[in-house]
């Protein structure tokens, strides 16, 4: 059976699409290859000309050194991320519910004013923030950092939840209200059960944002409360850079958010449009 011209054309296009995708995959993964290879090399064996070669024998010691160097910072990051993500998601959910379904005085202005907070350059508020944190005795600890990330996370979480809740038909809320549900009752029985995908999206977003954050992490902490990104900067920042350590550190620091993405990636895509303000 011979192929028709149409089938040939289709076949060629399909092949071209797969070739393009595979090439792009290689391009996207090239840095990963270099990172992994470098992290597994003996520092003495690292030099520019042989950067792409695989190590003769894997040098796992880099990873144990990195874990030593990170020490309690991994714990700090987890405590920080879990605390701030939970708080900002819950508050954001509540705020989103109010903004989506309740008429609030000045709402027209309050909502955009709140959203604006997620776009500001944080350098602009660093010194006043520092003064404030100190005056309320929260400077330097994980708790203070949780507060900071919760507050600056509120605009985005509020937005995502509001956009989720806007799509819930008002009739469902009316029905619950007629059944006697009040503000919290509606939230508990109608809104919250429908917002699981919203929570997944928000949690993924907040988790990666807070895990990856550096500026607050480095300026608002004492040594015992630093997060992981600061640990990585320590590894990569010394004068005599041995590239195996920063590379191993980059892998360790990147792993938790990467795992979250790989496992829950489809929620990210499903909810992504909500993250770009679109009502």
């Amino acid at each position: 059976m011979s192929m028709t011209a149409y089938q040939w054309r289709r076949y060629t296009i399909r092949t071209a699409i797969y070739v393009a995708l595979i090439l792009l995959t290689v391009v996207f993964l090239t840095p990963v290859y270099l990172v992994v290879v470098t992290s597994l090399k003996d520092p003495a064996a690292i030099n520019l000309a042989t950067a792409w070669n695989t190590p003769e024998t894997p040098y796992w010691q880099s990873f144990s050194e990195v874990l030593d160097a990170f020490g309690p910072r991994l714990q700090n990051s987890f405590a920080l991320v879990i605390g701030a993500t939970m708080l900002s998601s819950l508050l954001g959910s509540l705020n989103g519910y109010v903004f989506a379904k309740w008429r609030i005085p000045g709402e027209r202005y309050l909502f955009p004013l709140m959203l604006f907070g997620m776009f500001i350059p944080y350098q602009a508020i660093l010194i006043p923030l520092f003064d404030f944190m100190r005056s309320v005795n929260l400077y330097g600890g994980v708790i203070g950092l949780i507060l900071i990330h919760t507050v600056y996370g509120l605009p985005i979480t509020t937005l995502i939840f509001r956009n989720f809740y806007v799509d819930i038909p008002d009739e469902m809320l009316e029905a619950a209200a007629i059944d006697g549900a009040d503000f919290f009752g509606i939230y508990q029985h109608v809104v919250f059960p429908l917002s699981i995908p919203g929570f997944v999206v928000v949690v993924i977003w907040q988790f990666t944002q807070i895990w990856n954050e550096f500026l607050f992490g480095v300026t608002m902490t004492n040594t015992d409360s630093q997060p992981i990104t600061v640990g990585l900067a320590q590894l990569a920042g010394g004068e005599a850079v041995k590239w195996n350590l920063p590379m191993a550190g980059a892998i360790v620091a990147a792993l938790p958010p990467l795992l979250v993405y790989i496992v829950l990636g489809r929620y990210f895509i499903r909810g992504l449009l909500a993250g770009s303000v679109k009502g």
Partner: peptide, 11 residues
């Protein structure tokens, strides 16, 4: 031992 490195002491 409170060390903060990165960029030759800038941080």
């Amino acid at each position: 031992n409170a060390t903060v490195t990165g960029g030759s002491g800038v941080n």
